[in-house]
Design a binder for these strands. Structure first.
Length: 446
DNA sequence: TTGACTCAACATCCTTTGCTACAA
DNA sequence: TTGTAGGTTTCCATGTTGAGTCA
């Protein structure tokens, strides 16, 4: 008989299993609680019996709401997750109803569940979805609330600070926007939870730092992946993606070229070549001590700024806004400077991280009602914010990540009668901006 | 309760017209 | 005219958020 228990953020066993190590002080084998499922399976497969005292789930009132009706692809997602032992990541595009799949998973498991989300906005969205579809009031951890219940929604930060105390209280753990989970800090949330059943939700699992390779260990493998292209025209609005190429002005061009020459010269002096992201990281760490490296980084940063925020994009934007004056338009920029420049030039409201919360809500509300036809935003609307529907997205500037591109596209894909959405990318020819554009689209599959 | 503030954590951050070649 | 194809480590800047503190 093997004894298995949970003690202050640790899984404790009186006999060995993979993932556990011997601890002198405890006088037994210990490991991170997320190994519970594996350890339990290992012991059972070894033919031993287990005195399992790990989980102490919070009681959950019977879920009386009728079973959630799912669309065909949502049903496939749920089935794939169940087949994988109720562990894994479901990849669905923004607006395809990931939440419903998760709520159906809660009904399936029928036991204490924690849902972890990255923003307070999502905290509230989940709360209302749970009340609407499951007729249960969930506990809330985060945004000033601290209330634990059979179904609890928490921010990553609050879950992190209370993980030890809550580690063995939930049977199912759902991680919304699960691509955040592999970050060094948030990862500990997944590791301290003993929850044997796990569901990750995202539209874009891949991370620039490559840490998404940790997801199978923390949550489970990707069990289904549906791209926006598969749902267009039926469950998501049909769409077109266009590119509009612009050129630098003579003035910008000479500044851009002199900055690039400065960068090349600095790199030559340093004996550094930039062939990979690692090379660039090396340059960044060098810049902390070395003035030539610092100058190289400055020249690089400034040249990118010129390319991404070129004057011709403003002119091009003017034409596009006139052409689509009868439609709701979301403009996305790379930085706050360009967002405010566009806001001044076209007299449209701008939203950035500097916009006070109340003002942001007001702008979104007026956009929803149609009083505002155009909003310009930096990257604040990329994720975790309930942005009212628009039918045209104009990407003035952005990162080179497929994730941001997919998320921005997702902002115009909410289906409506007779709607055909449009995403227009403004790209400055012959500069690092075209490389960024290439990179973000190459991985996006849209 | 609110708002203003600070702090910590997270995310992004790469190649340059060359030299090839070929498909859409 | 545009797109294609690969190797693996700790922070120059800026942008963004949640939590905590204090008035």
């Amino acid at each position: 008989m093997v004894k298995l228990s949970y003690r202050r953020g640790l899984l404790v066993s009186d006999s060995y299993a993979p993932g556990l190590r011997y601890d002198e002080r405890i006088g037994g084998y210990v490991g991170l609680p997320y190994k519970y499922y594996e350890v339990l399976n290992y012991i059972r497969e070894s033919g031993l019996t287990v005195d399992d005292r790990v989980l102490d789930p919070i009681p959950l009132q019977a879920l009386r709401a009728p079973r959630i009706r799912l669309r065909d692809y949502q049903e496939r997602a749920l089935e794939a997750w169940k087949r994988a032992g109720m562990r894994g990541v479901v990849v669905l595009p923004t607006g395809a109803g990931k939440t419903l799949v998760a709520l159906a998973a809660i009904q399936e498991v029928g036991a204490a569940t924690i849902i972890v989300v990255p923003t307070i906005d999502l905290l509230h969205q989940w709360k209302s979805a749970i009340m609407r579809h499951l007729s249960v009031t969930p506990g809330i951890l985060g945004g000033g609330e601290s209330d634990v219940a059979g179904i609890t929604v928490s921010t990553y930060d609050s879950a992190y600070s209370r993980a030890e105390e809550l580690g063995n209280r939930f049977v199912l753990a759902i991680f919304d926007e699960v691509h955040h989970l592999p970050s060094p800090g948030y990862m500990e949330v997944a590791q301290v939870l003993a929850s044997p059943y796990r569901l990750g939700l995202t539209a874009t699992p891949e991370r620039e730092d490559g840490r998404h390779v940790l997801l199978p260990d923390l949550v489970g493998p990707i069990v289904i992946r549906v791209s926006p292209a598969e749902l267009r025209g039926k469950y998501l609005s049909d769409y077109d993606i266009k590119r509009v190429y612009v050129s630098l002005t003579d003035d910008e061009k000479s500044r851009y070229e002199s900055l690039r020459a400065r960068l090349r010269e600095d790199l030559k002096r340093l004996g550094v070549t930039l062939r990979s992201l690692e090379d660039f990281h090396r340059l960044l760490s060098l810049a902390a001590k070395n003035p030539v490296a610092r100058d190289a980084v400055e020249a690089w940063y400034e040249s990118v700024r010129i390319a991404v925020n070129s004057r011709a994009k403003i002119d091009s934007l003017r034409k596009l806004l006139a052409e689509y004056s009868d439609r709701k338009v979301l403009i996305f920029t790379r930085d706050t400077e360009m967002a405010y420049r566009i806001s001044r030039e076209f007299l449209v409201p701008a939203v950035t991280y500097k916009t006070p919360k109340q003002e942001r809500l007001k702008i979104l509300e007026l956009f929803r009602k149609g009083a505002y036809k155009v909003i310009v935003a930096s990257s604040v609307f990329d994720e975790g914010v309930d942005v009212p529907d628009a039918s045209v997205a104009i990407v003035v500037g952005g990162y080179g990540t497929p994730r941001q591109f997919i998320q921005r596209l997702g902002r115009v894909l909410r289906p409506a009668e007779g709607k055909r959405a449009l995403l227009i990318e403004l790209v400055t020819k012959g500069t690092s901006d075209s490389r960024l554009s290439m990179r973000r689209r190459s991985g996006a599959e849209v």
